[in-house]
Design a protein around this nucleic acid. Sequence first.
DNA 1: TTGCTCCTCACGTCACGTGAGGTGGC
DNA 2: TTGCTCCTCACGTCACGTGAGGTGGC
Lengths: 120, 120
Amino acid sequence: MTIGEMAREFGVTLRTLRFYEDRNLIRPRRFGSARYYGGPDRARLEMILKGKQLGFTLSEIAELIGAEDGATKVEFEEKLRPAQIAEQLDHLERQRVEIENAIARLKATRERKSPRPDAA
Amino acid sequence: MTIGEMAREFGVTLRTLRFYEDRNLIRPRRFGSARYYGGPDRARLEMILKGKQLGFTLSEIAELIGAEDGATKVEFEEKLRPAQIAEQLDHLERQRVEIENAIARLKATRERKSPRPDAA
DNA sequence: TTGCTCCTCACGTCACGTGAGGTGGC
DNA sequence: TTGCTCCTCACGTCACGTGAGGTGGC
């Protein structure tokens, strides 16, 4: 499939796909100058996006799925070592606390500005 | 107080303080080339850090506290309009959902890799 | 000829990190 | 003289966004 079709299917921009290629995360074939993406490329992109959702950087993702050829269907999570999982969970929990604090403070401000008697 | 004292007290780097000055967020006095921070500067830095904790960008913070001279002690949240609070809450709630999903998936992976019978 | 999709640079953005090279007072 | 703190550039980082200028097939 073409780069435009890939972008639409996965909800990313052309720039993102070219950027991932530049970082050696995806290696589409070329016909002339145009890029063409096959099954392995799609599998790799899925893993990349999964890794991003889990909060990993592109460098970390590259290390984890670097050797993979995309032919063997493996979930991103399965490539993580226990220590990496623990570390990432720690990181995410910290972020969650910060976000929850921010939400609580904003809600308090909102109530202060327009108090709702029934929502004491 | 000097830039080093400010940095230590607020837990930021010298680079950060200089960067905020570059963005016109703080305006310390100068004696020669050295920066000296007074009460108003500290008040402004407090507001900036509060704004960051609430997830606002430096541009947004600049707009909100731009006119302030730092003499009048106002909390950052008090400068927000109801629409801004609602919008930011929306933004933060979305982030929280993403982070909670990531945490859930990582925990599931952890259990799969080393199942604990009593934690079914 | 027009319109769509694709291409390659290459600078811009965000919030700083990180040296390089130099100054000033104890 | 050494050590500490401060200074000003200015390039680097992260994950792309955003034009600029050009090509190719329906």
